[in-house]
């Protein structure tokens, strides 16, 4: 049996790599990919806790279904926004998209 801690450490590592991607990338699409990785790490945590703390309760699996739904919606709207911004401003570099900067 795999210890629960292994799953949690893997999820933490994936989350932190995704966080680095979100903070460090210049391209807005790379930023979205980092967010997807962080959501995936959360899914691993949900499933691991269900399997080890409350097996057969299906709480984790149901939440993962909703999490994947929200991730898909976020990706679709995010990519549409990026394409719209690219069309109007000819860039997807996040530091150039500063229309709302005071």
């Amino acid at each position: 049996m795999i210890p629960l801690t292994w799953y949690l450490v893997l999820a933490a590592a994936l989350f932190c790599i995704g966080l680095y991607g979100v903070l460090a990338r210049r391209n807005a699409i790379g930023l979205l990919m980092g967010i997807e990785l962080m959501l995936n790490a959360a899914n691993i945590n949900l499933l691991a806790f269900e399997r080890y703390v409350a097996p057969n309760s299906l709480v984790g699996q149901a939440f993962v279904v909703f999490n994947i739904t929200v991730a898909a919606a976020e990706a679709a709207v995010g990519l549409a926004l990026i394409i719209a911004i690219y069309r109007s401003r000819d860039t997807v570099a996040v530091e150039d998209i500063d229309l709302l900067r005071g």
Partner: peptide, 30 residues
């Protein structure tokens, strides 16, 4: 995502930096 990259492709030329200026700080935070 591949489609989005292809639709916005020409802005990222090969010499441009892929990382923002604050990437060392991001590495430290992560």
């Amino acid at each position: 995502i591949l489609f989005a990259i292809m639709l916005t492709r020409d802005m990222m030329d090969r010499k441009a930096h892929v990382n923002a200026a604050q990437w060392p700080l991001a590495l430290v935070v992560a």
